[in-house]
Design a binder for these strands. Sequence first.
DNA 1: ACCATATATATGTTTTACCATATATTTATA
DNA 2: TATAAATATATGGTAAAACATATATATGGT
Lengths: 117, 117
Amino acid sequence: MKIDPNTLFLALSNEIRLRCLMLMQLEGELCVCELIHALGLSQPMISRHLAILRDSGLVTDRRAGQWVYYSINIGLEQWAKDILQTTALANCEQKPFADDLHTLHDMPNRPGASCCA
Amino acid sequence: MKIDPNTLFLALSNEIRLRCLMLMQLEGELCVCELIHALGLSQPMISRHLAILRDSGLVTDRRAGQWVYYSINIGLEQWAKDILQTTALANCEQKPFADDLHTLHDMPNRPGASCCA
DNA sequence: ACCATATATATGTTTTACCATATATTTATA
DNA sequence: TATAAATATATGGTAAAACATATATATGGT
């Protein structure tokens, strides 16, 4: 999956898209409702930005029943994957990424999660 | 030099700024006139984008006589340096970066260069 | 005065956010 | 099993904001 630097950085240049990507990088695939909860933003807004990420080849989506799961495109060129990983590791304890992770983990009734402790 | 991911990726999201940065990453410090020549763009346009890169902390400038030299900020956080290096190595043989390098090397009377072959 | 560089202003273009609405899937009920 | 309602997600239209470019002008060094 060839991606040119401009496309990549344009996708990363929006805070909402970056927060979504960082969560996927750190947590693996996430459904739209989890991203809505973690970021605390409106559904159309999240959906819009996910569509931009999908159209630029950075993420792929998978429908499972009523839910749609998004994850980092496994076919991305290695240098692009490296950039996502480097960014995630260096910033996951900073705002707003740390807060997003925390809010995600506190989400009740996450789809796909086991029902009992 | 602390830089947040959003500031970094916003700076990288413009093709002109990215081309300037890639040249600096690969060649070390360059003066404004060299960047103008390599990219083939107007002086005010280059100057304006360099100002954006300077204001966001990615590059530093140094005046030497009539010329002003720009280079990657040596005090950048390591993860940001890594991203620049990764991007440069993975894309320096692609357009438009390869052409820019070539045009730069073909520039006559580069300031600071030795006068004879 | 001349050269290299920087900045200001005006204008055109792109991005973004918001609201409403549409589609798809599941659940509930007759 | 047909129908209706609820949930999850996507998209269209539009107005505001951010960004990029071009031209003109200013600054700073020789």
